[in-house]
């Protein structure tokens, strides 16, 4: 199963490092990363492969949300199918 992690907020040092370290700690492989600054807002979209995840999906999702709160960012992990179904026929 693959999921999309989105990070939205004020750009600061170490966002990519912290999010990818958290993924690594859960044995989650980051397969693609795109980031951009949109109207002063840092936006990062990360595609991750969860097939080797050690904890449950919900545990990582909660930890990502907590990391976001700590860094003043909005971090969400969502199953990739929601994007596929909405934007592809």
């Amino acid at each position: 199963m693959r999921a999309v992690i989105t990070v939205v907020g004020k750009d600061t040092v170490g966002i990519l490092a912290k999010v990818s370290s958290l993924c690594a700690a859960h044995n989650v492989n980051v397969t693609d990363v795109t980031q951009s600054i949109l109207q002063d807002l840092f936006v990062m979209v990360m595609l991750v492969d969860l097939s080797g995840i050690r904890s449950g999906y919900a545990v990582l999702a909660d930890e990502l949300t907590a990391l976001g709160n700590e860094m003043g960012l909005s971090i969400k992990m969502m199953h990739e199918d929601i994007f596929n179904s909405m934007h592809r026929i």
């Binding site: 989105t6 939205v8 949109l38 979209v45 934007h87």
Partner: peptide, 12 residues
């Protein structure tokens, strides 16, 4: 890769 703008549209 899933399209960047599509992802942002959904999030918004």
């Amino acid at each position: 890769m899933i399209n960047f703008t599509d992802v942002l549209e959904t999030i918004k």
